[in-house]
């Protein structure tokens, strides 16, 4: 396959991945890596590098809008970035040691949990009644726009949330994904941050987390410009388009469909990882 055909197909696939990723909240990375490895036979380390780049682009692009709308809690983001960036360095270090088969299997299991997570439609937005002491000392409580005014919220579970964020950062550095699913568990369920604040703040953190490991990936030669170019531009365009559509679309059916696709990809990644084909 010539380079112009490969890059066109990668661009088209990434466009679709970015679009579906934005519409379903799963992010583009979860399909980019299976697409590159399973469909094009590209080494998983190159796929992870390209995906990591696309993750920085989409999260920074979306964060620009969310920050200005006043949903993002910059303090929560900055505090938890201590955990995610440290985890990302650990994950990127592991990526250089583990075999591609092991990485593929871990990736598959993370995909399964992401797919299951995205099916959980209901979110408890009542927030924590009492902030914990750490949240008060760190000034994590905030307000967000709701029905034309700013609704205050409390934050709890700071220590376990911080711990889970180290793991989220580690998975991001190891697998080149935003690991939004783990971040949402930490922020939405454990820290009891309102859903819209946790998704936008998680998104705000993803770019910095990915930047921490991207330096290591470039230095190891895992980021190939010929592959990163179509993937980054495709995912970015798709996710920008998807976030425009998101306002209008009812996404329950789409989310189920996408979760099913991700699940099948996950099983295939695990199978290929175990049998040594990746």
């Amino acid at each position: 396959m010539s380079y112009i055909v490969l890059s066109s197909l990668l661009f088209a696939g990434s466009l679709l991945a970015g679009l579906l990723g934005a519409l379903t909240g799963l992010g583009g990375g979860v399909v980019i890596i299976p697409l590159m490895t399973l469909a094009f036979g590209i080494d998983i380390r190159y796929a992870i590098g390209a995906s990591l780049i696309s993750v920085i682009a989409t999260s920074s692009g979306a964060a620009a809008a969310y920050v200005r709308e006043g949903y993002t809690n910059i303090r929560i983001g900055m505090f938890l970035e201590v955990a995610t960036t440290a985890g990302a360095l650990g994950g990127a270090a592991l990526a250089g040691v583990l075999s591609t088969g092991v990485i593929a299997v871990v990736f598959g299991f993370v995909l399964v949990s992401s797919a299951l997570q995205s099916l959980r439609a209901s979110h408890d937005d009542s927030g924590a009644l009492q902030p914990d002491g750490a949240a008060l000392r760190l000034g994590l409580n905030g307000t967000y726009p709701l029905d034309g005014r700013r609704q205050p919220y409390n934050v709890t579970g700071v220590a376990p949330g911080f711990g889970l964020m180290i793991i989220a950062g580690g998975l991001s550095g190891l697998l080149g994904i935003g690991s939004g699913a783990v971040k949402v568990i930490a922020m939405d369920r454990i820290m009891r941050i309102p859903f819209k604040v946790s998704t936008t703040t998680s998104n705000f953190m993803i770019g910095v987390t990915a930047a921490a490991s991207a330096g290591i990936y470039i230095a190891r030669g895992y980021i190939v410009p010929e592959l990163a170019m179509p993937v980054m531009l495709g995912v970015l365009a798709g996710s920008l388009f998807g976030s425009r559509l998101l306002v209008a679309a009812r996404t329950t059916f789409l989310r189920r469909l996408f979760a099913l696709v991700v699940f099948v990809l996950a099983v295939e990644m695990i199978f290929n990882g175990i049998t040594g084909r990746i």
Binding site: M1, Y3, I218, V224
Partner: peptide, 28 residues
Amino acid sequence: GGVYLLIIRGGWIPDFRSFQDGGSPLRS
């Protein structure tokens, strides 16, 4: 850069199947 890359190397047959040649030389 991508458009330029496609113009000068569009017909190139790449091989990204394994990391055998050590990846991208553009690493610093």
